[in-house]
């Protein structure tokens, strides 16, 4: 492995560690899904501003966003159902 590849891997490791995405702790999923969604939304916004963007890329980004939203919704529902005594679940 070249020194560049090594430092690149270390950079990626650090980036993911700082974002709390390496070993997501038990109750952090909703927050981490939201963080990933924000990054995807940022990219989609960039693509929508470009006139030269390939349609395929926009579709792919939109699909990822859809997946994250679906996961977020499903997991929130499950979380509410699994905590019937939680006042938040009665909203």
């Amino acid at each position: 492995m070249s020194p560049y590849e090594e430092s690149e891997k270390e950079r990626v490791w650090k980036m993911l560690s700082e974002a709390g995405l390496i070993d997501i702790t038990l109750d952090d999923f909703p927050e981490r899904i939201k963080a990933a969604k924000n990054v995807v939304i940022g990219r989609l916004r960039e693509l929508l501003e470009l006139t030269t963007t390939i349609q395929e890329e926009r579709q792919s980004v939109a699909y990822s966003l859809g997946t994250l939203k679906k996961l977020e919704t499903t997991l929130q529902v499950d979380s509410c159902q699994s905590n019937p005594g939680d006042p938040q679940s009665e909203k």
Binding site: M15, L21, I22, I24, S64
Partner: peptide, 21 residues
């Protein structure tokens, strides 16, 4: 799988200006 997907999505879209030499 969820952990990896979130990490992958973050890396895929959170591209910094860092480029290979």
């Amino acid at each position: 799988e969820l952990n990896q997907y979130l990490a992958y999505t973050y890396l895929r879209f959170n591209r910094t200006e860092h480029k290979s030499p």
